[in-house]
C-alpha cells in the first residue's frame, strides 16, 4: 500500500512549549488511522500542520508522495478536513455553506451532488435552514459533508464526535467505516473518546506531550493478554482471599473499594468463572474491559514500558 502521509521528525514549539516533539509516522492508503492522545497531547497541532494551518518548527511532511511545503495547493485539493467544532456561517443555510466550501475546493458543483452530501449526513430535509438554528451535532455533520463534498482521497477528522450525543457518535462511527470500506478513502481521525477509535481504526498512533508513544495496528495494540475482568460478588473480601490462594494470584490487581479486577488472557475467563463457582461464590457480574481505553490510559500515564 502506498504511503499517503509520511511525517518525519516533526517538531513544533510555541514559545517555550514543545507541542510536538520529533514525531514520525506514516499512513497508508486505505487506512483508518486513529490518532489518540489526551487533551493537549499535540494531536490538533499535528493535524493542523498536515493542513498547513501551522508551520512546523522542523521536520518534513509528505502527502501523496510530495512535499507539503512545495506542493501545497495540489495536495490540499485532495484533502477534506473537519477540524474540531466548526460553527460555520450561521447566517447561511446548510446548502449554502456546503456550496460555498465546495466552490472553494474547486470541484464541479451540481445541486444533486450537494443534496447527496446532505443526504449522506442526514441533513437533506434541513438543507434550506439557516445554520444558526442547528444543534452542535448537526453542525458537526454538516462539517463532515463539507469535508467530503469534493470527493477527497484523504479525509482528516479532528475530534469528529466532540459534543455529539450517543446516536450522533454512532452515526459518525458508521460514516467513518463506510468511508473506508465503501468509498475506499484514507481517513485520519483523532479523538480522545478512545473506544470510538478502537471500533473504527485499522491503525493507531498514540501521542503524549507531543511525543509518539506507540504506533501499530489496532490488533497489535489490543494484546489479548491484557484483558481486564471486573468481578462483582456477594463477598469481595472473601473472593479476593480465595483467589489469592490459587493460581489467579498473579493476575489479581490490588483490591480497591471492594472491586476485584484481574488482568489475564481472554481465553482464561471461562476458567476463572469455573473457579468462582467451585469456591461457592455468588457472582453477580463479570465484565470484560480489555479495551484500548485501558491501554491508552496506561501508555499515557508516563511510566509505561512498551512490551517486547
Amino acid at each position: 500500500m502506498p504511503e499517503i502521509i509520511k511525517v518525519n521528525g516533526l517538531c513544533k514549539t510555541f514559545g517555550k512549549l514543545q507541542a510536538v516533539n520529533n514525531l514520525s509516522f506514516s499512513v497508508n492508503e486505505g487506512d483508518v488511522y486513529g490518532f489518540l492522545g489526551q487533551n493537549g497531547a499535540g494531536k490538533s497541532t499535528t493535524i493542523r500542520m498536515l493542513l498547513t494551518l501551522i508551520a512546523p518548527s522542523s521536520g518534513t511532511i509528505e502527502l501523496f508522495g510530495k512535499s507539503l511545503s512545495s506542493h501545497r495547493k495540489e495536495i490540499l485539493s485532495q484533502i477534506g478536513a473537519m477540524i474540531e467544532r466548526p460553527d460555520l456561517y450561521k447566517y447561511l443555510s446548510a446548502y449554502d455553506n456546503l456550496k460555498l466550501f465546495a466552490k472553494l475546493s474547486g470541484c464541479k458543483i451540481t445541486n444533486q451532488l450537494l443534496m447527496n452530501q446532505l443526504e449522506m449526513v442526514g441533513l437533506a430535509d434541513r438543507a434550506k435552514d439557516k445554520v444558526k438554528g442547528f444543534s452542535q451535532g448537526m453542525k458537526q455533520r454538516l462539517g463532515i459533508a463539507i469535508a467530503l463534498v469534493h470527493n477527497p482521497a484523504l479525509v482528516i477528522l479532528d475530534e469528529p464526535t466532540n459534543g455529539l450525543d450517543p446516536q450522533g457518535i454512532a452515526d459518525i462511527r458508521n460514516l467513518i467505516k463506510s468511508l473506508s470500506t465503501e468509498h475506499k478513502k484514507t481517513v485520519v481521525v483523532s479523538s480522545h473518546l478512545l473506544n470510538e477509535i478502537e471500533q473504527v481504526a485499522s491503525r493507531i498512533l498514540i501521542i503524549d506531550k507531543g511525543r509518539k508513544i506507540i504506533e501499530g495496528t489496532t490488533q497489535e495494540l489490543l494484546d489479548p493478554n491484557q484483558t481486564v475482568v471486573d468481578i462483582e460478588t456477594n463477598d469481595a473480601q472473601k473472593t479476593y482471599t480465595l483467589l489469592s490462594a490459587l493460581t489467579w494470584k498473579n493476575h489479581l490487581q490490588p483490591l480497591i473499594n471492594d472491586k476485584i479486577s484481574l488482568t489475564l488472557h481472554k481465553h482464561q475467563i471461562p476458567d476463572l468463572l469455573r473457579s468462582l463457582v467451585k469456591m461457592n461464590i455468588d457472582v453477580y457480574a463479570l465484565q470484560q474491559r480489555h479495551s484500548l481505553e485501558d491501554y491508552f490510559l496506561k501508555v499515557t500515564s508516563g511510566n509505561y514500558v512498551q512490551p517486547v
Partner: peptide, 13 residues
Amino acid sequence: MGTLRLLLSKPIT
C-alpha cells in the same frame, strides 16, 4: 466562527 481553519486548509494561498 471556526471557518478560518476550514478556509485556509483549502487549496488557496
